[in-house]
Design a protein around this nucleic acid. Structure first.
Lengths: 332, 332
DNA sequence: CTGTTAGCGCTTTCAG
DNA sequence: CTGAAAGCGCTAACAG
């Protein structure tokens, strides 16, 4: 069914290796021979077998991207940039949509192992996940994006999550809020941990503590359900900091459901500044991470590693996080 | 760097082929030998090279999924289901995020060609795209999901787009609307074409025509900009049908921007019923496609083809589209 | 400039 | 039950 270089060679009346050379743009091939071969290849609609090629070249020209839930709009935005950057550099992109908990390594491994990819971007590593180093040991370059893992000797790109959390706290305090709630992300996500940490530190500087706190997934549903709970407390918070924008959307929805006005009765701050945060209906005040820049930086670090242009210690790139003020925050 | 079956063989004191058999669960291998080999493999942290394996087995255990813009939440929802279904069947999943216009075949091909994948789900084919049949000719099974292409001899899964468009029209007419606008999708998307067609037919049955129409991408921005235009007309529509939910979100945003109340001053109907449509802040009335069922059906059809269990004529599966009534529609 | 030759790492006969 | 040997389709020396 599939045609090979042999078939093309026979058709063009040359040797198999000449076909390979001609099709790969080897300058030594005579122009007429090349034309002959290209014509033959076209006639037989030849296409190179990628397995055979990578077997010998030891490269797959493929990058793996590990994300948590593709359904969370945060990831598609990241993937979009990564994809463009890798395509530009001649790599194709494989998306793996898995929850990368510590224990899942065995299930995850076979997917990417066996040199199926030349490098991996991990955007969903959980604290304590050991598989990151495993890749590294296999000699497969890895970069962590938007996540940190203790003791992994790989490149990583993050934003200043503690700083971002602090800014959120300071902002709310300055607006006069005193009863402030926190809806955090999964305990084993470094981002969730650091944002909460910074937030607490910011409140502490004003002599405050988190009035009510809940922890859940980075989902709309989590934000929705926990917010309903907070708002039903005897002394509900006048402001809520959500660990990411999608949680914040859930918070806004819960408030609307309860007939509580934002920002008049409740101020809300999210984190990430995904595109939707700027939509008119949300107008979400949020802590902005420079997503595109971060993704680009991650892609470039990985490509450098793959091409072996650099031999350096693992780096940790930290991008600043700034408050993006919109319509969901106001004076207490 | 990478260990091979040879290394394991040497370590275990057996032949290379026995290692292969043992690791692939060949029942003929003696239990003790197998244990020996497994231990050796573990010690050397051996992992099978996927290129070498597919070269000989002629399979990659990989499925390609072709989508338009991953940033459009419609796709992630589809991908999520597809991914689960394929994983269950033992396939890994490669996501290709490309605009699949007719002319782009050459750029797109090398990505998936060369038997890099065992089968392909195409969820973004544009009318007139010839590459669909090209895959088919290469002997690579293909299924079209949510898209139709004329004269392609492949399986396809769609919803009743004309029927859905008609339902939207009938609903608005019955609510008493007479000046009704349409914000459509790209002209070369079969879904956009069919939904508009059905919508017109529905209006025609009530002796009406589309009062104002605009056409654009399946994006928030398109909905936003065109809606601003429609609302600034001398006699703006009292209802708008958007070709998909994301466009409809743009419409809602534009209305809010203009201080126009939904549904009191403007009724809005979308299409797809993606998860966000049900969020409190949107409460979007929309035409529901059974996305999960459609994705599952597509996955199963493709798997059947790949495993060669069926040899049948290309089928066209049509799922019903129903109105999901929420808060963005009311009487004129 | 082109043909011959040797593998890449694996699965799969074919012997024994 | 295990080893030897062939070969998947390609690239990359090595000759000429």
């Amino acid at each position: 069914m599939a045609t090979t270089t042999r078939d093309v060679a026979r058709e063009a009346g040359v040797s198999q290796s000449t076909v390979s050379r001609a099709l790969n743009g080897d300058p030594r091939v005579a122009p007429e021979t090349r034309a002959l071969i290209q014509a033959a290849a076209k006639r037989l609609s030849y296409l190179p077998n990628s397995a055979a090629r990578s077997l010998i070249t030891q490269r797959t020209d493929t990058i793996g991207i590990l994300i948590g839930e593709i359904t969370n709009p945060f990831y598609p935005q990241l993937v979009d940039v990564l994809h463009d950057e890798f395509t530009l550099a001649g790599f194709r992109t494989v998306l793996l949509n898995e929850r990368a908990d510590a224990g899942r390594a065995d299930e995850l491994f076979p997917q990417l192992q066996g040199r199926f990819v030349d490098g991996i971007v991990i955007a969903n590593a959980m604290l304590g996940a050991t598989f990151v180093d495993d890749f590294h040991k296999q000699g497969i370059p890895v970069v962590l994006l938007n996540r940190d893992v203790d003791d992994a000797h790989v490149d990583r790109v993050v934003s200043d999550n503690t700083g971002g959390g602090e800014v959120a706290a300071t902002t709310l305090v300055e607006l006069g809020h005193r009863r402030i709630g926190l809806i955090g992300g999964p305990a084993n996500a470094s981002t969730a941990r650091d944002r909460a940490l910074g937030f607490e530190r910011g409140l502490a500087r004003a002599g405050l503590e988190v009035a009510s706190r809940r922890v859940g997934e980075f989902t709309h549903q989590s934000g929705y359900q926990w917010c309903l709970e907070l708002l039903r407390e005897p002394a509900p918070p006048t402001a809520i900091f959500a660990a990411n924008d999608v949680i914040a959307f859930g918070v806004l929805d819960a408030a609307k459901r309860m007939g509580i006005r934002v920002p008049e009765d409740l101020s809300v701050i999210g984190y990430d500044d995904i595109e939707m945060a700027g939509w008119e209906l949300f107008g979400l005040t949020t802590v902005r991470q420079p997503l595109s820049q971060m993704a680009k930086a991650a892609a470039r670090m990985l490509i450098e590693r793959i091409e072996g242009r650099v031999v350096r210690e693992p780096a940790r790139l930290v991008f600043p996080a700034n408050l993006m003020r919109r319509q969901t925050t106001t004076y207490a």
